[in-house]
Design a protein around this nucleic acid. Sequence first.
DNA 1: CTTTGCACCTGTTGGC
DNA 2: TGCCAACAGGTGCAAA
Length: 271
Amino acid sequence: MPELPEVETTRRGIEPHVLGKMIVDVVVRNPRLRVPVSKTLARTLRGQSIRTVSRRGKYLLLRFPTGTLILHLGMSGSLRIVHRGTPPRPHDHLDLVFDTDKALRLHDPRRFGLAVWTCDDPFVHPLLAGLGPEPLGDAFDGTWLYGRSRGRRISIKQFIMDGHVVVGVGNIYASESLFRAGIRPLRAAGRLTRAECARLAAAIRDVLAAAIAQGGTTLRDFVREDGAPGYFSPHLDVYGRDDQPCHRCGTAIRRAITGGRTAWWCPRCQR
DNA sequence: CTTTGCACCTGTTGGC
DNA sequence: TGCCAACAGGTGCAAA
């Protein structure tokens, strides 16, 4: 579910509720996430207050005085602020309970998410160490994409979804960015021109920024911290729209699999 | 090194 | 109605 815009929406949503708040209890209902939740997490966190709420790619970082809790929402995860005592629904695996009678609750049916504690600098943690630049940051541009893609034979869609190239671009925004840039998703990454890489980098920034402004995309189960959905769905030009008319030229949108994931594109607007 | 395929999980949808 | 296959917003790993 969550790509960068959904994770950033979640970050902004939870921040005012958790910043500076002290953990009084941690409830682990099911530790079996992608990485098992540490049995000592409650003992570690109890009594500590959250110093900052930040994001690296699709990871959320809750910094405490003695370390950082790294959260990931996988395919189906979401975080909500609930009142203490709100009965858990199925797949509500983890609660951080604050001294404010509120709790941060992780819900994740498919359990591809994680909650990992590290005492070290989180950026050297194996989960984060090899990640590429932030797409909304200065280090990401057409020159970076061009340089990294030389010699690569995988599709450009697969390429921009690789977190070692650039973080945060998942299956929705990969197809959407390629539509905006006018580039077919199945083209070999190494065959893009400098100009195309520049257009693509700009398209990625624009699409992600626009999606953040709308609170992300809700397809089925993404919700914000207050339970509201994201409102970017009506702005999707190609994702999930196979056989429907292109918003720009009316041609039927096509779909194909690349890298094990579905890509959508307009055969007329994209070359 | 790159590329490919699969594994991890549960829930929903669509065809027969 | 029921069953079953296909598919879903992500990532890591093994094998070639």
